[in-house]
Amino acid sequence: MTAISSNSNTEDVIVIENLNKWYGNFHVLRDINLRVKKGERIVICGPSGSGKSTMIRCINRLEEFQEGSLVVDGVEMIEDVKNIETIRKDVGMVFQHFNLFPHLTILENLTLGPIWVQKKPKAEAEEIAMKYLERVKIPDQANKYPGQLSGGQQQRVAIARSLCMNPNIMLFDEPTSALDPEMIKEVLDVMIELAQEGMTMLCVTHEMGFAKKVADRVIFMDGGEIVEENEPEAFFSNPQVDRTQQFLEQILNH
């Protein structure tokens, strides 16, 4: 484990410095600099292809990057299996398409990590799983399979599955984009509750209501770079950059 660089504050749980990533010749992430404090809630928005998903996927090494540095909870992301494992145990992730394991029951989806990664006894893992299923309000679905649940329920299970690993940081990659409108609220409610409990959250979403309600900071990305970042109030009422203004006009006035 490598200590974090000297100029960073110990409160910062994520430190991204001059991060660059290419897909072949395509420059997807350009000089990303981002610091996230413990307990901070950050909403990332931007047009599709702007690199916002790619950026948060770098944080738990679902994507590699070529230049720059990334430190998560004091562990530097380098080509080292141990470091990558340590970071992944610390960071939970929720995907647009839920990505539940269809061959396992809801309960087994939730206990998989605790049993095989944290090496917990089955009974204890199931106890934890039921606790989180109750928190996302679907304990009665424990023995069903993912295919038997609605989209909203599946996404709540996916959130519970991440929480079972007791992460310090949660990443949300467009968690409501694949949901029917009437199911968005039930997922956002769970996320709001989580935010209020002080979880460090990075959330790629276009739910501007959610951003206004819980975000400490809103980040606007375009063309692989962070174009603007501000507190939600200022971000929405007084965007500084043209591209942000255009984007907000498009998503707010329709």
């Binding site: 738990n60 995907f95 398409h97 394991f101 998989l112």
Partner: peptide, 17 residues
């Protein structure tokens, strides 16, 4: 789907598991 591997990785599971 790739998402299955990604979800398993984000839980911290090793490649052989």
């Amino acid at each position: 789907p790739r998402g299955q591997t990604e979800a398993a990785r984000s839980l911290g599971l090793r490649e052989n598991k």
